[in-house]
């Protein structure tokens, strides 16, 4: 009973296309170059699954709401002492003069907590969430391939870092344009540049903020390979984010602080100087790359050897 006998195939598999005899399809498939199309199917599926998920949309909505709150507060709190913006570059004082500064204000406000928390949720859930629902075993026997699945999960988490940052920036720009005047931008170094250049610098700032999240994403993915509970992985990652921020604020721990992933986070403000001060920005990129390499390798080592018992 050779299943490849012509015409012997079950009629249910007779779908449109060359299906009655499986051989031609297989040959056609073998001839097709392995480019986009089939190898990337999992990445597209993962992006769709992540970004159309209710939880993701809620997090993005919350992120988009932050600039609205800040913008409305600044607009209607017309008191004179706006300068008390606390730590970080004092963008908030500038918002009333130029709505573009709401972008920088909103990014500075969300980078310490909201953004890494959202990234921690997505990264922490990446593998552990699939394990918790049991779908991990079906992806692996499909076979997704462990390395491929891990890479797809990391790529999707990085995409989320960028989308989340752009959501904050985009919302801030819209609110800023609506509530405040837009115009020439006075940089932190005192020079004034045209609005277009200011917008370009805003895009660069958003990218710098997204890059700042690369380390958290890798850390979260590693944590995600350690457990079968999505909730535990998310909570652990978010807990680590908060712990690191606290450590970074304790003066006595100065010697370890350059190695904390949040150490250079506010370096994005250096993009608003003329000329741009690259040293901290580049240190940030290097540090995030280091985290990605270390925790990416750890995640790989763990995930490729782990027994999937759920």
């Amino acid at each position: 009973m050779s299943p490849t006998e012509p015409g012997a195939a079950a009629p249910v598999y007779d779908v449109p296309g060359p299906r009655t005899d499986p051989a031609p399809l297989r040959d056609a498939a073998a001839r097709r170059p392995r480019g986009l199309g089939r190898g990337s199917g999992l990445l597209r599926s993962e992006l769709r699954t992540t970004f159309l998920r209710g939880r993701t949309l809620v997090m993005l909505a919350v992120l988009a709401a932050v600039p609205v709150l800040v913008g409305v507060a600044v607009r209607f709190e017309t008191g004179g002492d706006e300068g008390g913006a606390g730590a970080g570059p004092a963008f908030i004082a500038q918002v009333t003069h130029n709505g573009l500064f709401l972008v920088f204000t909103a990014l500075a406000a969300t980078l310490p907590v909201f953004l890494p928390m959202a990234v921690g949720v997505v990264a922490g859930d990446a593998i552990a969430g699939e394990a918790a629902t049991g779908t991990l075993r079906y992806l692996l026997v499909a076979p997704a391939g462990r390395v491929r699945l891990l890479l797809v999960k990391y790529a999707t988490t990085l995409a989320f870092c960028l989308v989340a940052t752009l959501t904050v920036a985009g919302s801030a720009l819209a609110v800023g344009a609506l509530l405040f005047p837009l115009g020439k931008v006075t940089l932190l170094s005192g020079t004034t540049v045209p609005l277009v250049e200011g917008l370009l610098r805003a895009v660069a700032v958003a990218v710098a903020v997204a890059v700042s999240l690369v380390g958290v994403a890798a850390l979260g993915l590693f944590v995600s390979t350690l457990t079968n509970s999505g909730i535990a992985a998310m909570a652990t990652t978010v807990g680590l984010v908060i712990t690191v921020q606290i450590l970074n604020a304790v003066p006595q721990l100065e010697m370890i602080q350059p190695y904390l992933f949040s150490h250079y986070w506010l370096s994005f403000a250096d993009l608003l100087r003329s000329p741009v001060e690259w040293s901290d920005l580049l240190s940030n990129v290097g540090l995030q790359g280091l985290y990605a390499a270390v925790f990416g390798s750890a995640a790989w080592a763990r995930f490729t050897t782990r027994d999937i018992t759920v």
Binding site: V12, Y13, V15, P16, G17, R19, L25, A29, G37, R38, G39, G41, L42, R44, S45, T49, Y138, L139, A142, P143, A144, G145, R148, L149
Partner: peptide
């Protein structure tokens, strides 16, 4: 089903919809 099928790098995306429905 489409997601599980996409996880298999050897499966043909053009016939995916039809195979899923079958």
């Amino acid at each position: 089903l489409a997601r599980i099928d996409a996880a298999d790098p050897t499966s043909e995306p053009r016939t995916r919809r039809a195979r899923v429905d079958t």
